[in-house]
């Protein structure tokens, strides 16, 4: 039996404080949120294994800093969805705007539509699976984690990348500085299959993807420069 919160009758602050009651308790609960109408900051800062279903489109920073919770947006998400997520699962059934999953440390972000520019910028361990395509400058300075794109990737993919692994099935408009295509070994196909399965994406064969990563040729990768500090 899930609790229902109607944002047409309430406020973002009140909703979030209800959801924060569970923080640190380890308790589970189920919440359904209706009439989001593009509101910002919904379900941010959760720190408990609860499920939150948001019925409609959301604005900026939905499910930011998420820990343990499963947040599903039944609609589109504005900029910065699941920004700095630590763990848990955030699913967007529509498309997401800029910098989805930015700086996120862990957990899984699934976008069933497209993600726009700067998807996974500076990601630090999160896994992001996009069923559609992603925009330009995605995975810029991505440090670790995996970004899976079943559609196409925009310009400057993976610019100044560190250790994150990028898998793209479609066309890549262009690679950013120091980002190169790398061979798909069996272990990569295996981890990709697992990710697609976890994301609930069917009809995408791991064998159709290409892998991209860092060539490790930029200044910061050269040990001779370590003396400079």
């Amino acid at each position: 039996m899930s609790q229902r919160y109607d944002l047409a009758q309430g406020s973002t602050r009140e909703l979030n404080s209800w959801l924060h009651h569970y923080n640190g308790t380890g308790e589970s609960a189920a919440w359904q949120v209706v009439n989001p109408n593009g509101a910002h900051n919904l379900a941010v800062g959760l720190d408990a294994p609860i499920t939150v279903d948001i019925e409609g489109h959301v604005g900026y920073y939905c499910a930011g800093m998420n820990k343990y919770a499963q947040v599903t947006v039944h609609g589109n998400a504005g900029p910065g969805v699941a920004e700095n997520m630590m763990s848990g699962l955030v699913r967007i059934t529509g498309s997401a705007s800029q910098y989805a999953g930015a700086t996120a440390h862990g957990g899984l972000l699934v976008i069933e539509g497209d993600a726009s520019s700067r998807c996974g910028i500076s990601m630090k361990g999160v896994d992001i699976v996009v069923h559609g395509s992603i925009g330009h400058m995605s995975a810029f300075m991505a440090q670790s984690g995996r970004l899976v794109v079943c559609g196409d990737a925009g310009e400057a993919l993976g610019d100044s990348l560190y250790e994150a692994r990028l898998y793209v099935r479609g066309n890549v408009a262009g690679l950013g500085a120091d980002c190169v295509e790398k061979p798909m070994k069996d272990k990569h196909k295996l981890e990709l299959e697992k990710l697609l399965c976890e994301a609930g994406i069917t009809g995408a064969d791991a064998g159709e993807f290409r892998r991209f990563g860092s060539a490790r040729k930029l200044y910061n990768f050269n040990v001779d420069n370590a003396d400079a500090y």
Binding site: G38, A39, H40, G56, H57, G59, Y60
Partner: peptide
Amino acid sequence: SEYRALAVLPGAE
């Protein structure tokens, strides 16, 4: 600039 401004329109969802 943001979806919330469109949400007031009939059939926006």
